[in-house]
Design a protein around this nucleic acid. Sequence first.
DNA 1: GAGTGGTCTAGACCACTAT
DNA 2: TAGTGGTCTAGACCACTCT
Lengths: 238, 238
Amino acid sequence: MKKYEEIYTDIKNKIINGDYTATEQLPFEKDLCEAYNTSKMTVKRALDLLVDEGLIIKRRGSGTFVKDLSRKEIERITRSNHLSGFTAYHSNSGRKVTNKILAFEVIQADELVQDKLNLKPGSFVYNIHRVRYVDGKPIVVEKTAMPIERVPGLERKHLETSIYEYIKEELGLKIQSAHRRVTVKKADQDEALHLGIEENDPIAVTEQITYLDTGDTIEFGVTKHRADSFASENIVSS
Amino acid sequence: MKKYEEIYTDIKNKIINGDYTATEQLPFEKDLCEAYNTSKMTVKRALDLLVDEGLIIKRRGSGTFVKDLSRKEIERITRSNHLSGFTAYHSNSGRKVTNKILAFEVIQADELVQDKLNLKPGSFVYNIHRVRYVDGKPIVVEKTAMPIERVPGLERKHLETSIYEYIKEELGLKIQSAHRRVTVKKADQDEALHLGIEENDPIAVTEQITYLDTGDTIEFGVTKHRADSFASENIVSS
DNA sequence: GAGTGGTCTAGACCACTAT
DNA sequence: TAGTGGTCTAGACCACTCT
């Protein structure tokens, strides 16, 4: 493990365990350098990770302090959301993910998809339409477009489990980031039917463009979430 | 301006202007060091900002590349949302923000507020309840709790314009970050009335804890948004 | 093997805060 | 004025990709 990760993890654990409590001052960078037998840049980097994560703040001229966080807020940050797919996310909690496939076809990308995925006119994409269940309960209905040449050999069986797993494990591709947008609307008849809710009930809509570590787009997806199983968290800075 | 910010801005502009296009390879770090007459760490830092922002990706052993971004996606990222208050955000677009004050009182923090703001039992907070309008149209209804000792001298007139402005300009405090959570629900009768929508229409609910640059909590707010004027965007990594 | 980006160092100097 | 964190350097060595 990298040195700055070790320092980061160590200090983070001390905050979680209460060795450093809310608003408490951390040792100075100079002292941390000695304690961890390392240089200033490395300590700074470790601390900056904690700043980004929202656990500490730094004040030039004064020192470094744990934020005025409640226990619950620390917990919330701790199990913070890095990018993980639907299947991975829910399976980690020991729940069972199943999918109903409503459509699986290859079509020419329409203008919206072309634009979002930055494709040439006439490009072909998989068009995937699924309802996704956790422990038998419908959670989201999802429409996804994926450029066929970037996901060769995609089959129906992959949709029934996890497309991301296929992309990662079998194709050996790495997903690097996703650009996400959350809005809110009334469920139409179709959405209500699939999600087991009433028409006009509120739903959350997330639009997502996913990128590989090569920088190429791999997916444009629009996901409709049942209101009772949706939450989105993030930390805004500066 | 700091050197790494200059490099960051320069490269960012080149991407926005199309000097570097989607999927194009950037010069190597070594060459950028020469071009900007600086050291590797500084160039790396500038590039890492662009990575965080979602504009480029780096591949060890290969090089650095512009992401496969559409023009619209570049625009979207460009006018990206740092932390800005309601008034500042909407006024920047030349629109007029007004507020209707439904409640302004000092009360003992209830358990929820105590917990979120990490306050001692019995602490007093301002309890503020406002409807906020942009160009006369109701956009959000907002309930905010602020510890009185951290916002001394808050008056009704500040609520009618911008509390953040008072905090920043008159108290000289600096807001550093906010922890946000987005959920979705049906509007109740009260919310519908204030927002000018129908009961049971969908609304977005954001819960926010705001921190000063001292690390202290300054605000716990719950905001109900009209669906037609709400969107939340973010980039998820790793 | 040559070349990329990633980590880390030891230290200089700067901007800011406290006293 | 002393001490904090912030920026920046010049260079070493490592992990990885490509050919």
